[in-house]
Amino acid sequence: MEQRATASLWEWANPVKFLRLSGWLLPWVSWGAAICLAVGLVWGFFFTPDDFRQGSTVKIIYLHVPAALMAINIWIMMLVTSLIWVIRRHHVSALAAKAAAPVGVVMTAIALVTGALWGQPMWGTWWAWDPRLTSFLILFLFYLGYVALWEAIENPDTAADLTAILCLVGSVFALLSRYAVLFWNQGLHQGASLSLDAEENVHDVFYIPLLVCIAGFVLLFVALLLLRTRTEIRARRIKALQARERAA
């Protein structure tokens, strides 16, 4: 039976179709990411005025804010793809979650390191147990556990099932930790004076290059995700072909 090309979104969950579409998309997304990042970062670093209070250190937001945004959103994306795997059992979905996790680790690490670099001149310390920083540190640990579990299990479907459930349970506990940390820090410090919220302090001159940078990071993530998912699919395909050779 012949199906129309636009029959369903789920068609793209077929590995072969996904490879075809992603192969076509990848160069566009990659170039988009490169252009957005180049424009946004150069604009942000060299063509915006220094902040009257923070001086030139404020410019680290062009790395810090997009990385932090991606760190959270990649986890949410992993949660969604894990759910799709659990419910509809599309292999591409599980592999996309697997492919996204290390990118998430790196984004979280970038957010933490740039935060420390920014914190040094601003707060006079590399690290403060500010609720926001602490939450990111905990998120980092969740990412590490998730990646480690994928690595530890041999059977790919078992690994996909177990990591998906870990992702669901982990998401609940990550949320709980976020509120716990907010509660915990209130009990210690005044909190608010230390917690410097980047978004609130951003003026229009900084705002547009920041948006460009965020777009660049999103495109960069999509490009990496497509690339890594394609690699995972091909690795599985090689394994499947080898298994067929052995069986024949």
Binding site: P15, H91, N155, K239, A240, R244, A247, A248
Partner: peptide, 12 residues
Amino acid sequence: SPRAAAEDEAFL
């Protein structure tokens, strides 16, 4: 009959 694992079928 010799064939691929169920989890591999989608990749062939």
